[in-house]
Design a protein around this nucleic acid. Structure first.
Lengths: 277, 277
DNA sequence: AAGTGGTCTAGACCACTTT
DNA sequence: AAGTGGTCTAGACCACTTC
C-alpha cells in the first residue's frame, strides 16, 4: 500500500495530449535510474527507462528463467506507454539475450536450459564434426576463504566464504578441459560434489535453477601456457604441453560478477571459435 | 537503358491503398533474392529487401567507405517505402557495423580508418594499461600460386595467383605478433613491401583504400601451440615457447572470403580479449 | 532555419500459435 | 476465433549539426 509513484521522463510530454506516463503502483522498481527530471541532464529515452524497469523485474525474480513475461500490450498498459515503446525496449533485451521472443507465443525469460544457449558460453569446438556437449567430471569441491585476488574480482571481501570447484570435461571420453572455478559462498550455499555430478547438462543451468543465479554475460582473457604437473595429469598430456588458458569473469543481472573461472583447454583436436563482427 | 524493374514483395500489398513498391530503374541490383512472388515461399519482409538493396550499393561501390549515404527520407523515396522501413533496414546494417549513424549528420559507410573500428579485428590487449596499436614490420611479400588448402578457403582455384605476406607487429618495440597472410592475387595487384611498410595504420585501412576491399567480418579459430624455429627467431622466444595460434578467414561484402591469416601471438604480457554475450 | 537521425504514438494488417 | 509477436505506414516532435 506504499504506492509510490515514479514519474518517467518523456520527450513529448510538453506537447502531446494524454501524456503523463506513470509507473503503476504495483511496479517493484524503486529507482528508475537517477534524478529523473524532464530537463535534460541525465536524459534517457522512455524505452530505455522501460527496459530498465523490465530488467529490474527479471532481476527481482518476478519472472523467472524459462517463464513467459507479460505481452507487449499488457506491459504497455502497465507502464502507460505505447506498445511500440515497449517493443523497442524488448528488442534490446532480446538482442542482449536476456529474453527470447517466440512469434505467436510470447516473450520468454532466457534460460541456460535450451539448445540455443548451450554453446554461447562454451566456445571450444572439435576440429572435425559438429559441436557437442562434453561429459562432466567433478574433481573436487571445497569451501574456502576467498583469497584477495578472487575477492577483488568477485566484488566480495577478502576472507569471505567462497566455493572452489575443479572439474574435467571430456569429449568422447577424452579429457579436454580442466576448469577451476570460484563462486561467492553467500550465493552458492549447499553446492556439493554429488549435486554437481548427478546434474546432467550445463552448469549454468544448475546455477540458475538451484541458486537463482542466471549468467547474462562473461568477459574472457585468453593466453597460451604450458601444462603444469596437475594439468598434465588430469588432461593426460606431458608437462610442458601447450594449453589454452582461458580466464573468465561471469556476470548476472545488474552486471554483478558471480563466477571466476580459469579453464585450461587442450587444443590438439579442438579450437576456440570466435566470430569478429 | 536496360531499365529492368524489380517488384518487391510486400505484406499488405493486397489491401493497402497506394502500395506497389517498385525499385527505381537506376538501382543496380539484379537479383533481389529469389523468385520474389508475393505468395509465401521464400518470403522476406520489405525491410530485409531494402537492406539487401542498400548492401548491394555498398558492394558495388556506389557509396564508398567513409562517405555519407543518402538520408532516410531520400532512400524511402527512392525505394518507394516509408521512412520507418528504411530505418529498420539501416538499423540492422548499423548493428552489423556496415554503416555508422551520426545524429544530425547522417549515415556513413563504415571504414577501417576510424578509432572506433581499430580494435574490432585486433583482440590482443596488454595485461596492464590501455590497448594501443602496435608497430608494423613487413618481413616479406611474395606472389605465389595458391596451395590447394589456401585456394579452398579463399574460394579461388588451386594454382591461381596469390599474395603471401609475413609481418611482425611489436608493442613498444617488443615483437609480439607474427602474421602470415594469404590474399587473392586477382584483387591485390601491385601490393609491395614498400607500400605496406610506408603505410601507417591498420592494414585493413590500406586494403580498403588501395584495393577497394572492405572487411566486414571474420571467423577465427584459436589454439595453443609451441614456437617453431621461425617463430622463435622472429618473436625472440625459445623454440617450444607457448604461443596463441589464431587462424582467421576474413570476408568482404557478400560474405566473400578475401583474406586468410595465421597469427602467432606471444601472450606473456598480452591476452586475447573476448566478450561472451 | 533547415536537415539529419532519434523517439513516441496510433492504427492497420500479417504470420504464427493455441483454444 | 483470439491472442501473440512481426511488419508497415503516417505523423508529430526532440536532439543534434550545419548553414
Amino acid at each position: 500500500m506504499n504506492g509510490f509513484v515514479v514519474k518517467l521522463q518523456t520527450m513529448n510530454s510538453t506537447t502531446s495530449s494524454a501524456n503523463n506516463p506513470l509507473i503503476s503502483p504495483t511496479t517493484p522498481g524503486a529507482g528508475v535510474g537517477g534524478p529523473s527530471v524532464n530537463a535534460s541532464p541525465t536524459f534517457s529515452p522512455l524505452y530505455q527507462q522501460i527496459k530498465a524497469l523490465i530488467t529490474q523485474s527479471l532481476q527481482s525474480g518476478e519472472w523467472k528463467p524459462g517463464e513467459l513475461i507479460p505481452s507487449e500490450m499488457e506491459l504497455a498498459a502497465r507502464f502507460k506507454v505505447s506498445q511500440g515503446t515497449v517493443r523497442k525496449a524488448i528488442d534490446e533485451l532480446s538482442a542482449e539475450n536476456l529474453v527470447v521472443r517466440r512469434q505467436g507465443k510470447g516473450t520468454f525469460v532466457a534460460t541456460h536450459h535450451e539448445a540455443r544457449a548451450q554453446f554461447r558460453f562454451l566456445r571450444l569446438a572439435p576440429d572435425e564434426g559438429a559441436p557437442h556437449y562434453p561429459e562432466n567430471q567433478i574433481v573436487e569441491v571445497k569451501r574456502l576463504r576467498a583469497p584477495a585476488e578472487v575477492a577483488r574480482l568477485l566484488d566480495i571481501k577478502s576472507g569471505d566464504s567462497a566455493v572452489f570447484i575443479r572439474r574435467v570435461q571430456s569429449f568422447s571420453g577424452v579429457p579436454t578441459i580442466l576448469d577451476d572455478l570460484w563462486l561467492p559462498g553467500a550465493i552458492f550455499k549447499g553446492l556439493t560434489v554429488e549435486r554437481l555430478n548427478e546434474y546432467k547438462g550445463p552448469m549454468y543451468g544448475l546455477f540458475e535453477t538451484e541458486f537463482g543465479t542466471h549468467m547474462i554475460r562473461a568477459s574472457e582473457q585468453i593466453r597460451a601456457v604450458c601444462a603444469d604437473e596437475i594439468a598434465a595429469q588430469l588432461l593426460h598430456v606431458d608437462v610442458g604441453a601447450p594449453l589454452l588458458n582461458v580466464e573468465r569473469v561471469s556476470f548476472t543481472y545488474g552486471d554483478k560478477p558471480v563466477e571466476l573461472r580459469r579453464g585450461l583447454y587442450l587444443t590438439s583436436h579442438h579450437h576456440y571459435r570466435n566470430e569478429l563482427s
